[in-house]
């Protein structure tokens, strides 16, 4: 197509219009109705969908964190210790397990989690730590830890 005047160039978006639209239509391929068939509607919805997608990447992390917290709280309740106390005890004992590992241990290796709760309790007892949230001595499982190497716990933080 040959344009003799400059004005007509404004209308012309180049020969690759179909490819430009195709990119949008490919993203909109799973939409319903005009949102996938009409470009002017599709492009608006694609932009919105991409924004949602960006936000969801952060929300997904938040959701997983909430789920792990719920699971850890549930597991802590079984061993008569609060999640806060467990976290504090493990931190002081230099056991750096994150939420994901703790919740995995709670569901897949309950005995390991029980030992962790006992270690946390023992560490807080050695430190003389009193839970400020409920103003109580740290509770938790009384496992027999006499055979376990706990010398590292004796050093106060």
């Amino acid at each position: 197509m040959v344009f003799l005047s400059v004005v007509n160039f404004i209308r012309c978006r180049g020969p690759d219009e179909i490819w430009r639209k195709r990119k949008i239509f490919k993203i909109a391929s799973h939409f319903i109705g005009r949102r996938r068939n009409c470009y002017s509607v599709a492009v608006r919805n694609v932009h919105r969908a991409l924004v949602y997608g960006s936000k969801a990447r952060y929300l997904k992390k938040d959701d997983m964190k909430n789920l792990w917290d719920t699971r850890i709280t549930a597991a802590c309740e079984q061993h008569n210790i609060t999640a806060y106390t467990l976290r504090e005890g493990l931190d002081r004992a230099n056991i750096m397990l994150d939420r994901k590992s703790l919740s995995d241990l709670a569901s897949w290796e309950p005995r390991t989690f029980e030992s962790l709760a006992a270690v946390a309790k023992e560490k807080l007892r050695l430190d003389g730590f009193i839970d400020t949230t409920d103003k109580n001595e740290p509770t938790g499982r009384d496992l027999d830890l006499s055979n376990i190497f706990l010398n590292g716990l004796k050093e106060t933080k």
Binding site: L67, R71, A74, A106, P110
Partner: peptide, 9 residues
């Protein structure tokens, strides 16, 4: 089932 460590919505 919030009291179970296997909880999922």
């Amino acid at each position: 089932g919030l009291h179970k460590p296997i909880y999922h919505p």
